[in-house]
Structure formats: C-alpha cells, structure tokens
C-alpha cells in the first residue's frame, strides 16, 4: 500500500487519541492531529497532507468554516476534506456533503476499518469521472 499523509482535526482530545490509534493500524499512514480549525489551516499549508479528516462542530472555527478557508488559500485549495461528525441526521449529512466535502463519516466510526475507508475514498476521488 502507498504511503499516505492524513491530517485529523478534532477539538476532542479523546477522539483525536482513538483516531490516532485507529490509523496507526495502517503502517503506511502518517498522521498529524490538530485540535482546532485555525491550527489546521497553518499546518495543512506547511505539511501538505493527502487528505484532511475533520470534525464539524468545533469552537471558534467550525469544520465548514475551516473548509471554506482551506479552499481559499492556494496551498490547501485542492486537498480533499472528509467530515467526521456526530451531527449525523440524514439532512445534516446531506448539508455537509453539499459544502464540498469529499465524504461525510458519521460518528461513532469503526476504528478497525477507518484507514481502509479513507483509502477507498481517496481512490474514488483519483478515478477519472
């Protein structure tokens, strides 16, 4: 499997921890965790991840706002963003998808298949339309 750089953004320490342990199951994944949208904007520009996995409900700058700002700054404009959210009612998932997210994962998630799901999502994005 190819190596992959994933940035995870979530304000909840415990969720960052379990996502980190979950993605550590795939030795080819290099992970960087951020606890806020503001930090993610800086880190993503410098680190250039292949994918950003991001929470929606975060204080100060929420997921959708962070996505808009990522799109506006050139170094991060094309990085695919996947939302992972506990706001998981059908209309909410549809709304987050409509904001331009590559996919929306509902919390709780399956930690044993998270890496595979992210890889699958990236493969789909890479496929010509």
């Amino acid at each position: 499997m190819s190596s992959l750089r994933i940035m995870h953004v979530d304000d909840d320490d415990d969720i960052r921890e379990v996502v980190s342990m979950s993605l550590a199951l795939d030795p080819q994944i290099e992970l960087k965790s951020c606890n806020s949208g503001t930090l993610a904007l800086q880190e993503a520009a410098a680190w250039q991840p292949d994918l950003i996995l991001m929470d929606v409900m975060m204080p100060l700058m929420d997921g959708p706002e962070t996505l808009i700002r990522l799109r506006k700054q050139e170094p991060t404009a094309a990085i695919p963003v996947i939302f992972m959210t506990a706001k998981a009612q059908r209309h909410e998932l549809e709304h987050f998808r409509s904001l331009g997210a590559a996919a929306v994962f509902a919390k709780p998630f399956d930690p044993l298949s998270l890496a595979e799901s992210l890889r699958g999502c990236l493969a789909q994005l890479a496929r010509p339309a």
Partner: peptide
C-alpha cells in the same frame, strides 16, 4: 434533538472506538 444527538454521540464515539480497538 440534533444537539442532544451530537452531545451523546461524541463520548459514545470514544467509548465505541476504544472498545473496538
């Protein structure tokens, strides 16, 4: 409902993921 669901799912996510791991 949406807020309560979010607030309940957040700790549940950590619990479920920890136990699954």
């Amino acid at each position: 409902v949406s807020t309560v669901s979010h607030e309940l799912r957040t700790p549940l996510t950590s619990i479920a993921a920890s136990l699954a791991l």
